[in-house]
Each structure stands twice: as C-alpha cells, then as structure tokens.
Design a protein around this nucleic acid. Structure first.
Lengths: 250, 250
DNA sequence: TGGCCGCCTTGACACAGATCAAAAGGATCG
DNA sequence: CGATCCTTTTGATCTGTGTCAAGGCGGCCA
C-alpha cells in the first residue's frame, strides 16, 4: 500500500505570479467564484503541490489541517475497514474541492491514480477568505449539496441495486462525467482498474469482469480494450440502471 | 403507500409572534445562527406546517420549491427504484434541515414516522436571507459537510460491511444520536420498524430480525420489547462495527 | 373480550455474488 | 525477444443473505 507523502513539491509563489489567475482548472473549480482582481489574495494563501501515482496525499483519521483543490490528474477517495476492506467513495479530477469535513480529522483518504497536482489552503486561512468572499462560500455550499445528492444516489446503488444495475449506473455516470449538458459520450476511457470499480460499487473484481462480459455478450457495450468501453445501447443501460433520476410513478 | 400531502396546516404569523424566537428546536437547528433581534426577519419568511404519520411531505422528483426545517417529530428520508425497492438515506428529527439540493427537483422523499411539524421557506426567500446573514450560510455549510461525512460512512457500511457489522454500527449510531458529547446511551428506544432498519442498512426484515436475535443470544444486547434495545457489551459492538472512526493502522 | 391486522420471528430452501484457482493478456525491462 | 509481474478473464464451488412460508405476538377496535 502506498505511504503518505513525506514531502510535497512546493512551487514558490514568486515563481508563479499568475498561479490562480491563469489556472487551467479554475473554470471548473470553486475558485471561479472569485473575481480576477481578487485572485492575488487567493494565490497568497495557496500552495501548489503534486503527488505521484499511488501516493496517499490525504490520510483518513489524520489531523485535517488543509483543504485541497485538484488542478490536474485523478485521485480515488476511499475509506478502509481495519481488515483492509475498502470502499471507494468517489473518483475526483481537476476542479474538485476536498476536505469539507467539519471534524478535525479527515474522514477519508485520497490517493493519486495519475500524477496529481493540487492547491492546498490551510484551514484558518481559508476561513478568513470565506469571510471576505461570500460568493466563495455560496459556491462551496453548492458543491457540498451536489455531492450530498450524489452520495444519496450511491447509497441507493450500494444498498439496493444488483450487480448489473450497479455497472449500468456506473457506465452511464462515466458517460456524462465532465459533460455539463448535452449528449453523453458513447466512448469511455476508464482511468480506474477493475479493482477500483469493484470497491466503488461494493462488488468484487470477478463480478465486475463477469458482468462487463455479460453486457458485451448482450450487445449493450463493446470493450475494445481493458480501459475502453463503448456504449452501444444507451437506452437499455438506462433501463437497467433503474431509470436515472426518474420521478417515481408508484 | 402514503400520498403526498394535499394541504398543510398553516399557522398564521399573526397568531405566533414568537414563531422563531421561542422555537423549541432552534438551539439544535441552523436557525441558531441568527440573533434574537433578527428573528423577525426569519419568522417573516417561515410557514409552520405539520404532517400526520405516514404522510410523504417531500416527494422525490417533484419541483424543489421549498426548504424545510423539522421542529417536531421524526421522518424517514428515502429513494425508490421503479420496482419499489427502497433505500432509506436517513432518519431525521427536530433541528434537521432538508432540501439542500442544488437541482430543481428533490433528490429524495420524506415521510413522517411520527406526527411531524416543520418550518417551510421558499427557495428565493431563503436565498435573500442567506445573502443578509452570512452566519446562516456558514452554518448550512457545516451541516452539509457533516452530512457528507455521514453519507461516506454509510457508503462504507452498505458497500463493504456484513449484516452483523451493519447492525452493530446502526445500534452504536443510535446510542449517540442526540448526545453531542459524553457517554452514549445504553438504552435505546427505536422509532423505526424492522422494515425501516432493513431499508436503511441494505438488508431484509428477516436478516435484521435474525441478526438481532443472534446479538441477543451472544449477550451483546437485550431486547426487552420490539422497540427497545439495551446495549450490554458496548466494546464488543464497537469491535464488530469495525471500530467506529478508527485511524487505519495498515 | 374476542377477533382482526400488522409486525416480528423462525425455519427451509434458493440464489446472487464471493471465494478459490488457474490461465491468458499486456506492460515493462533487461 | 524472452522473463517477470500485474491485471483481467474464466471456471468451479461455496456461502451469506434473500425468498418463501408459517406461526406468534401485541395493539386496536367493536
């Protein structure tokens, strides 16, 4: 298992005067709540760091001193049971804000799946910033509310859906990832392993593999390579998934 | 199945000048973020209503026009699959704030388990209030963050824990409900049925019943009546539950 | 007081998904 | 180009929990 990062690569502010103004992932992140002219204040409390693949840069149970904002790469968020069983609670990419916990320790761990770059804010400093920029706070509330809704959807999946239903839901969710509105993508390139998918959906690697094969045999998807999935029958998947976000007619 | 409320009992503001100032559940709710002197403004946009047992006063998928704040009674929050499978996402009591969804429809339903009284705010009106009272917004963010952490814990439970582990976790959670700090209660009076517990833990009624019996046979709990549970071996339950919020030593 | 009805418990059996095992890809590296 | 290692696939079997079924208990109402 990957160990907690000992030392982050710190990019000096002086080297990057436009750290926040020119940030690639700003549009997608909570930072878009701050105007250009106030960006200096944001940049002033930010430290940009990175974590190589496999590094656990947030560790469940450790003192929650910082907030994070992913700017590059992907990470898995997860919780562990004492015997090592793992539940992945999400996959996060650029723009994602981490560390909203009120408690003084992190409630989950975060591990880089690709090389990850992120901004770090200390708790007290962010607090000051929030006082000065109500828009930022509003944005955080939005983010939290959105994640809460997603979490509830995931509880439905984990508590009540069958293996096929879980996989169908997962593939559909992947197909709209990062597509704010408009058509879902038919071609997916998965950044996670079967093991990750299993730990995200509350199943085993073998069940993931078998169920994907089954969906392929039934012509709902194609699997040109291990990491690529093509959705061939979107409607059938939606049906299997339990009609994403339908209004119950019962 | 209970039908959506047709008509709420509306209490006129003029009849209750101290609607918010004297509110019993104010201390426990987000409203405590507002000073006494500003309570009039809060009361001005609030409508107090009630729902009898079994009434679904929030319906998943319907237009999310209001926010709610429970002041009395208990409700179950849940999501349904088209074929009727139900996942209960939480049990909420006085002080609980509902409707944080960003989307324009509710993401879950809420049904009264006991007669429920609640305050209702319209979305736009609350928005105005939030602009005027940053402290309220801060409080909401706290609430959302807390619920998010709880949701992640529940995902771990639903995705990775066995039946005994789920029940142990549930009983322990019940034992600290409403006990902010200090000793957990040993004597629990459950407000929910076995069916509710099953739908909350992602199991069936039969498994709940069998597992409770098993815990009783092993002297970890007593079950003096259907609704009462006495925790006899707290440490053993914690152990079974997977060490609530331990820091992983792996 | 007795009958009804809903909830809970218990038992027998079934099955979805887990576990165990082995082989097949596919990447990396000397 | 082969060796090694890791991930994925597939097969065989097992098992925890679901399903089906039958009582039991308690509350409520007439």
């Amino acid at each position: 298992m990957a160990t907690l990062s000992q030392r982050h690569v710190v990019i000096e502010r002086s080297q990057l005067p436009d750290l926040c103004v020119g940030c690639d992932s700003r549009a997608a992140s909570v930072c878009n709540a701050i105007e250009d002219r106030d960006m200096a204040r944001l940049a002033a409390i930010t430290t940009s760091s990175e974590a190589p693949v496999g590094r656990v840069f947030i560790q469940e149970g450790e003192s929650a001193d910082n907030f994070f904002n992913i700017t590059l790469g992907t990470a898995r968020l997860f919780k562990l049971l004492p015997d090592g069983r793992r539940q992945i609670t999400g996959f996060v990419g650029p723009g994602h804000f981490l560390g909203l916990a009120v408690s003084d320790t992190y409630a989950f761990s975060a591990e880089a799946m690709e090389p990850v770059r992120f901004c770090r804010f200390s708790r007290p400093r962010l607090r000051v910033l929030l006082d000065d920029f109500p828009a930022l706070e509003k944005r955080l509330l939005e983010v939290a509310a959105t994640e809460l809704v997603a979490a509830q959807e995931q509880m439905l999946l984990l508590g009540r859906k069958t293996a096929v239903e879980r996989l169908a839901s997962f593939l559909l969710a992947q197909s709209v990832m990062g597509v704010p509105c408009g058509h879902p993508r038919a071609h997916l390139t998965l950044k996670m392993t079967r093991g990750d998918i299993a730990d995200y959906l509350g199943l085993t690697i073998e069940t993931i593999s078998r169920t994907l094969t089954r969906l392929r045999n039934e012509r709902l998807i194609d699997i040109p390579s291990t990491t690529d999935v093509i959705i061939r029958n979107h409607a059938a998947l939606v049906n299997l998934a339990g009609g994403l976000n339908r209004s119950p007619t019962a």
